[in-house]
Design a protein around this nucleic acid. Structure first.
Lengths: 109, 109
DNA sequence: GATAACTACTATGCGACACTAACTACTGGT
DNA sequence: ACCAGTAGTTAGTGTCGCATAGTAGTTATC
């Protein structure tokens, strides 16, 4: 992963994961795979799990342990009310940033 | 400043400053003032200066000391060839991220 | 002429986050 | 018995923005 991407993911990866969870419950391995699919080629395994622990401790998600047919049980996360509120706030912050950056990018050529 | 904004600025603030410098040379105090004007209400004084030191050490900018009429001499930064290359790379990374996030934001309601 | 207010840059320590790397644990196929 | 795939955990590292304080010059006020 490029160094730029690594830095830019700080703060946004959390939003991305919350956005995924707002659509449907999911577990770590699944989310990692999805991200890789989307082009986040080398998202580190551990990164997503650490993030999930964090948002759980902040009380943004519910967790259910569900047995898997293959391998250890899955920890399935789903967004709760607080998480949805936090996600809204995330979108507001994100929109603000994109507006400013679009302004800068336009007058760029 | 919200915690979310703080985290999101990591990586992007650098791009923002480089984008500013790509339009015209500028010095630290000026950039800080401009950012505050744009709504980055509480960008810390020291943050911008630290960033400028960093991009100077990476060889992305030229620096000229120019006497000020009011106060100490200014360190005026301008983007060099390498900086312009780096900025292009930044826009590519940024675009990738915004595309993914827009996808997520759309199917959100 | 001391004090504040604005201009302009420097320096130190901290917390949060993504990354690296290694590990545990369970299942199925060879 | 071994290995690949699935699923999660943990410890240590580096970068970045923030908080805070300090230095230094000019202008205006009292």
């Amino acid at each position: 992963m490029g160094k730029q991407m690594t830095e830019m993911l700080k703060g946004t990866l959390e939003g991305i994961v919350l956005a995924i969870l707002s659509k449907r419950p999911a577990y770590g391995y699944e989310i990692t795979a999805w991200l890789r699919d989307q082009g986040f080629s080398d998202i580190a395994e551990g990164t997503v799990y650490a993030l999930l622990v964090r948002i759980e401790q902040r009380g943004l998600v519910e967790v259910k342990k569900i047995p898997s047919e293959k391998g250890p049980p899955r920890k399935v996360y789903s967004l709760n009310a607080q998480g949805r509120k936090f996600l809204e706030e995330f979108w507001r912050t994100w929109s603000f940033l994109t507006e400013r950056l679009e302004q800068l990018h336009k007058g760029d050529r």
